[in-house]
């Protein structure tokens, strides 16, 4: 399909509000989010999107009540085990961005490592799950890595800096979808979203489905991306 974004990222927002609207505990919203996640992965895969990134858990989310964090961690583990084979069968390479906090339970860390091992040779689509992720932290880590390697200041360019970020092959994000109508970046992939188009559908994440995803792709295709120039007559990624 012409004009498709190469890299789509989703900030999965609105689980708590979805549950509150139904007088349910917040954790019920997280459980309901699983169906949306699978639907969006399937939709992106069908559309031929090459890179899909999902913001599952931020470094700031550790401040939430322990019981809610616990439910979230168990939910992630259950989702991984439940869908690993299907993801692999569809040729989806799964990777995680972040996942450094010692509070992550070892069994979950093992499952994450296993999922990455199982799918590492797949190339049909790359799914990056930002889990225990912070955009600023990634930038600080890249700076540390540059210093450790003794790179002279005059040799530090945007390109050389990007090579020190986690998953340096991750292309810049073309489209970010943040559900629930909230309009913030929330420390998400700060380096990679520099030129991204943002869409803020009012739908809460547990209600977000393939059709909403298609609508967002359609909006993106009709936008005129300029990357700071006067006019670039295409909605595709940089240089196309």
């Amino acid at each position: 399909m012409r004009g498709l974004p190469d890299h789509v990222a989703c900030v999965m927002d609105g689980n708590g509000r979805w549950a509150a609207q139904r007088s349910l505990p917040r954790t019920a919203g997280h459980h309901a989010a699983e169906a949306a996640v699978i639907d969006v992965i399937e939709a992106a895969h069908t559309a031929g999107v090459g890179w899909l990134s999902l913001y599952a858990f931020s470094t700031e989310n550790w401040r939430r009540p322990a019981a809610e964090v616990d439910v979230l961690l168990r939910l992630v583990r259950r989702t991984i085990k439940k869908h690993a084979l299907a993801l692999h069968a569809r040729g989806i390479r799964c990777r995680f961005l972040g996942v450094t906090d010692p509070r992550i339970p070892p069994p979950l860390a093992r499952d994450i490592a296993d999922l990455m091992t199982l799918t590492r040779d797949n190339r049909r689509m790359t799914l990056t799950v930002a889990f225990d992720h912070g955009g600023r932290r990634d930038i600080v880590e890249a700076a540390r890595s540059l210093i450790r390697d003794g790179v002279p200041p005059e040799q530090v360019t945007e390109e050389s800096f990007a090579r020190h970020l986690p998953h340096p092959d991750l292309p810049e994000v073309d489209l970010v979808i943040r559900t629930s109508g909230e309009q913030r970046i929330s420390n998400f992939m700060l380096w990679q979203v520099a030129y991204a188009e943002w869409i803020f559908p009012d739908v809460l994440w547990p209600d977000f489905r393939a059709e909403h995803f298609w609508q967002c792709l359609d909006v993106y295709r009709r936008r005129n991306r300029r990357f700071g120039e006067v006019s670039v007559p295409t909605a595709r990624g940089k240089g196309t």
Binding site: R78, A84, L85, A113, D114, L115, L118
Partner: peptide, 13 residues
């Protein structure tokens, strides 16, 4: 290695 990873993932927690 992949077979081992898949086996663990398919094993109930």
């Amino acid at each position: 290695t992949k077979a081992g990873a898949l086996f663990r993932l398919l094993t109930p927690a």
